[in-house]
Amino acid sequence: MTSGPATAASPWFVRPPSGAAHPARIFCFPFSGSGASAFSAWPAAIDGAEVCPVQFPGRESRMAEPHHGTYEHLADALAEALVPLLDRPFAFFGHCAGALPAFETVLRLADRGLPLPERLFVSGQPAPHRASRDRMLALTEAQLRVELESFLRGRGIEPRPDMVDMGLAVLLRDHAAAGAYRRTEPVALPCPVVVLHWRDDPDVHPDDLAAWRPYAESVDVRVVDGGHYDFMHAPDALLRALGSWR
């Protein structure tokens, strides 16, 4: 898979990153089945750091492009696209399965001797070597359809069949990538990690979140009020946590 340069016209960023307007950036990685629109309610900046939602191929504005296939391929292409934007301090935020390509991208930046994020924020996602515990990976296509319809209704959207069919196609490809992902043991990251546990999220066990601790010298596990998808509203507690690295 090829990627174009990360310029104002780059398909990787639905909000073209600004020039000198902000002294730092937060690159945001969406969860399975979603795209950059998961961050549409977020502010343009958090404590001076520009919010830069990442758009994966094969969805939303990139629906016509081939799916990335694996997290490893995704991270390879994104690391290349990010190069022109690593000219100032930055952080990564990944929610749920989006934390895994964020993690893999950090490793690729390190391998290439490129600038590294000052923080990797992991939200509601077990450590990579426990990623297979995600209950969604065990669901059938019919069960995933029900989950998707429930999610849309929870967002105040009536799930039309054509909308559900399109979303399910993306979700199934994303789940194939998640199911193929394997890390059997922790891998040391060259940056601090902040793990966010949503207090009302019944599907992510605290032990699976605490399993991030061997991944960096500094791993801070924090509890945030709310449920699994409440990050989409950019609640104040989350914004405070994300502003803590500046």
Results as ranks from 00 to 15, higher is better:
51 V>P: 00
126 P>S: 15
29 F>V: 07
210 A>H: 07
163 M>R: 12
46 I>Q: 05
130 R>D: 04
205 H>S: 04
177 A>I: 10
43 P>I: 11
145 R>D: 00
208 D>P: 03
15 R>A: 11
148 L>G: 01
240 R>T: 12
126 P>H: 07
208 D>C: 01
149 E>F: 12
57 P>T: 09
168 L>G: 02
153 R>P: 07
183 R>I: 14
213 R>P: 01
138 A>Q: 12
98 G>H: 11
42 W>L: 04
52 C>Y: 15
27 F>R: 14
4 G>F: 11
33 G>V: 01
9 A>D: 13
153 R>A: 05
164 V>N: 02
18 S>F: 10
51 V>E: 11
144 L>P: 00
218 S>E: 14
116 L>V: 03
133 R>K: 13
78 L>T: 08
72 E>A: 14
218 S>L: 05
166 M>Q: 02
136 M>L: 11
226 G>E: 09
136 M>D: 03
54 V>T: 11
77 A>P: 05
68 H>L: 02
47 D>P: 04
164 V>F: 05
209 L>Q: 09
187 V>G: 09
237 A>N: 07
236 D>N: 05
44 A>D: 15
2 T>K: 08
38 A>Q: 09
10 S>R: 04
66 P>M: 01
19 G>F: 06
19 G>D: 10
127 A>L: 04
40 S>T: 07
2 T>W: 00
105 T>D: 04
53 P>G: 14
99 A>W: 14
162 D>Q: 04
82 L>W: 11
239 L>D: 12
34 S>I: 11
203 D>W: 02
12 W>E: 03
2 T>Y: 00
236 D>I: 06
195 V>Q: 06
110 A>Y: 03
141 E>C: 06
158 E>S: 04
177 A>F: 07
48 G>Y: 04
160 R>V: 00
243 G>Y: 01
106 V>S: 06
218 S>K: 08
237 A>C: 08
27 F>V: 09
233 H>P: 00
85 L>D: 12
17 P>L: 12
100 L>Y: 10
31 F>N: 04
226 G>P: 10
185 E>K: 09
136 M>Y: 14
35 G>P: 13
224 V>T: 12
4 G>Q: 15
184 T>E: 10
40 S>C: 10
17 P>F: 15
25 R>M: 03
207 D>V: 07
191 C>M: 13
123 S>Y: 08
106 V>C: 15
167 G>R: 06
22 H>K: 06
195 V>T: 08
168 L>R: 01
162 D>P: 00
46 I>E: 08
221 V>K: 05
222 R>D: 10
14 V>E: 14
82 L>R: 06
209 L>P: 02
75 A>E: 06
220 D>Y: 03
79 A>F: 08
234 A>R: 11
50 E>P: 03
207 D>C: 01
57 P>R: 07
245 W>M: 12
92 F>L: 05
212 W>T: 01
228 H>P: 01
140 T>I: 13
24 A>S: 13
218 S>H: 14
51 V>I: 15
217 E>H: 09
151 F>I: 10
21 A>H: 14
231 F>H: 15
2 T>P: 07
161 P>Y: 08
51 V>K: 09
127 A>E: 11
141 E>S: 10
226 G>N: 08
183 R>N: 05
77 A>M: 08
137 L>P: 03
57 P>H: 07
